[in-house]
């Protein structure tokens, strides 16, 4: 399984450099997001690498090669899910490094420290986004799933702020109840709940992906 993770990184040496520039771009261009730029930057960074990995698999039709090796299909699927966390970790380190370098340059560009809350929200966003897009890619392959994923990614990008806006304006009993529920808890509790929620999403998605990938023909 470790090999499969290493494989995704090896084939994407160039994508990594691109993704790094993307991070710099994010920090500079999304100043208005203030500290939340981290979440946005990580979501984009991970998306770029995950999609890049799938694209390389598809380009060289290597699903055929991998599935002719003594590998369980579950492991191929699992490695992609684990890679999300590897990319979050790499992205976070890169983000901190980029922010540090920018702060040294004495420019008007503001940088913000990475907090635990931000990392949790990045994990949640990445999990949510990819939990939905992965099963489709495992069923159809990257190229065929591309259009759906593009639509989905854009919906996610613009839909989430709209949703938050909607929820914050709606004054229903449910939202108040959820609000009170969250307010009454410690940060640690909220963070663990959100992480647990991410994990639930990923597990359900993994289950579906495995089923679809096992049925897939090459």
């Amino acid at each position: 399984m470790l090999n499969l993770l290493i494989k995704d990184i090896l084939v994407q040496k160039k994508t990594f450099i691109g993704a790094l520039f993307y991070l710099v771009f994010f920090v500079v261009a999304f100043q208005s997001l203030e500290m939340n730029m981290f979440t946005a930057a990580i979501v984009a960074f991970v998306y770029l690498l995950v999609i890049g990995g799938f694209a390389y698999d598809d380009k060289s039709k290597s699903d055929i090669m991998l599935n002719s090796l003594p590998i369980k299909r579950e492991n191929i699927v699992m490695s992609k899910y684990i890679s999300l966390f590897v990319y979050i970790a790499i992205g976070t380190i890169a983000y901190i490094a980029v922010s540090f370098v920018i702060s040294l340059l004495n420019t008007p560009i503001k940088t913000y420290p990475v907090t635990i809350e931000l990392i949790v929200s990045a994990v949640l966003a990445v999990s949510l986004l990819n939990s939905i897009s992965f099963p489709l890619i495992f069923k159809l392959g990257y190229v065929k799933a591309k259009v759906f994923n593009m639509i989905f990614f854009l919906t996610f990008l613009f839909g989430v702020p709209l949703l938050i806006d909607f929820v914050s304006k709606a004054d229903s009993e449910v939202t108040t109840a959820v609000g009170t529920f969250l307010l009454n808890q410690s940060d640690v509790a909220i963070a663990s709940e959100l992480l647990a929620l991410s994990l639930v999403f990923l597990l359900i998605s993994y289950g579906i992906s495995v089923r679809l990938y096992k049925k897939r023909e090459f």
């Binding site: 090896l10 040496k13 390389y56 060289s60 055929i64 090669m65 090796l69 590998i71």
Partner: peptide, 22 residues
């Protein structure tokens, strides 16, 4: 197989070290 299904972007050495441990 009839065509190569290896990753084009990496070296023979790298491809071998990905496959061998399986």
């Amino acid at each position: 197989l009839d065509e190569s299904h290896y990753y084009e972007e990496i070296t023979v050495q790298e491809m071998k070290s990905i496959i061998a441990p399986f």
